[in-house]
Design a binder for these strands. Sequence first.
DNA 1: GATGTAGTTGAAAATTTTTTTCGATTAGGA
DNA 2: TCCTAATCGAAAAAAATTTTCAACTACATC
Lengths: 134, 134
Amino acid sequence: MAGLETVAGKIRGRGYKVTPQRMAVLEALAAEQHQSMDSIRSRCPRVGLVTMYRTLDLLSEIGVVRRLDLGDGPRYELAEDHHHHMICESCGDISEFEECPIDDGPLGDLDFEISSHSLEVYGRCAVCAGGERR
Amino acid sequence: MAGLETVAGKIRGRGYKVTPQRMAVLEALAAEQHQSMDSIRSRCPRVGLVTMYRTLDLLSEIGVVRRLDLGDGPRYELAEDHHHHMICESCGDISEFEECPIDDGPLGDLDFEISSHSLEVYGRCAVCAGGERR
DNA sequence: GATGTAGTTGAAAATTTTTTTCGATTAGGA
DNA sequence: TCCTAATCGAAAAAAATTTTCAACTACATC
């Protein structure tokens, strides 16, 4: 699904080098969406901390990675598909949904040239909401 | 417009005390929306750094303040009205808009109990977009 | 208005997070 | 295979945030 091959091409295309560290980070990111720095790091212990930061910066810059801010520290995920996040304030679970009101019905006259957007929904997931009453 | 009086009541109502430091932070926040920590701090030099952090935490907890993450560090603003942000990636300007696709047309079947949400739009403001071509 | 006390404050120190340095290493074109 | 600019990472620096703890104060009660 990911096509890390494709990503490698994108890296090279921008004049950057494809290194084992960068591929390791990409593989770590492919394992799970919206991971924290620690989570990513634990998946590729071989990659130094500094390189980790620089790689995530670089991948974000070329649009391969998306940096998120969901309340707790920064999180990162592959920017493969467009989606948004639902954060359960009860159990902390983070899930995704594709429905996008921005793409569906464009906003009115904002007088602003939109290139991207992010939408996060906070509340209670089905499990937590259900456990309380239903 | 703010009604810092009202906020004071809300603080007391939660069992917290209304202190000059807390009011100072609230006044600083009332001066401008989506401020960075430094910006707020410069508006109330008398308030210690630690107290600053704690106060923003407390105010966020009782829903008076909203903490934002717009790419650069954390920002804070009074949660008076509901609005979203447009961030110009060219000049860094941040502006607000009230139109809300979430409130207007509710999302489909997310199986999630929404209590709040945030929407940020990135791109180019009218000035930057205009300066380049129009 | 005086008093008691739990909540609050802030300087200093500890932690955590992120960035900078710089010499050693390496991807990838020639 | 060689060469060089790009990259890596250990150590140190800088920045951001949290913890400690003794002194202070808002405010409910007397």
